[in-house]
Amino acid sequence: MITVKDLHKTFGDNEVLKGIDCEIEPSEVVCVIGPSGSGKSTFLRCLNMLEPVTGGEVIVDGYNLNDPKTDINMVRTEVGMVFQQFNLFPHKKVIENLMLAPQKVRKISDDEAHERCLKLLEKVGLADKADQYPQSLSGGQQQRVAIARALAMEPKMMLFDEPTSALDPELVGEVLEVMKQLANEGMTMFVVTHEMGFAREVGDRVLFMDEGVIVEEGVPDQIFSNPQSERTKEFLNKIL
């Protein structure tokens, strides 16, 4: 579903990604962990070209993102994204947040969009909030709306950029629950997270990143119980 070959990304003189190779299979849930500044969010943002790639190859669902002929807007309709800061549209009601892209990009009718989006809100447990504005919702509820908004485009895969890092601790659970449900339904997911419990329980594979490279990867049990690299051990010791 996603193939990344020797991905490099620099900001000015600062090389943030120093050659990343990675393969993500359909229905796989890949969790990325690592210290802040390790480049994990940048890596995720390269997967839908929110950050233009400096070097290497990123192929998403058969589209080569480096190819100038690739219609990046097309690719993005297949790749949902959830942000740390939710980034809901504050001037639109919850249901309108969900309906906007299906209407304007997929060109589906208002009625069909409304019906589909209401179902998605039900799925994340927020159908009763459809006509409210995002500001009146809690952080956890806002992030669930954001997930539903991304799902409204019926993407083939979902990127999560530290989806629970901006939440009060007691609100983290409800968001992870929705993500877990998605994983169980077979969604392909790429999750940058500090929630080790989630990575361990839901992840099919865990990548540990540090200083712009993937230091170690493997099934969660192996990474968490029997890490091979010194840096992985050190990191896990600090946070667990």
Binding site: F83, Q85, N87, A101
Partner: peptide, 13 residues
């Protein structure tokens, strides 16, 4: 906030 532009673009707009 530039997150608004990113959110819009990430949806394919």
């Amino acid at each position: 906030d530039k997150g608004q532009m990113e959110a819009g673009r990430s949806l394919g707009l």
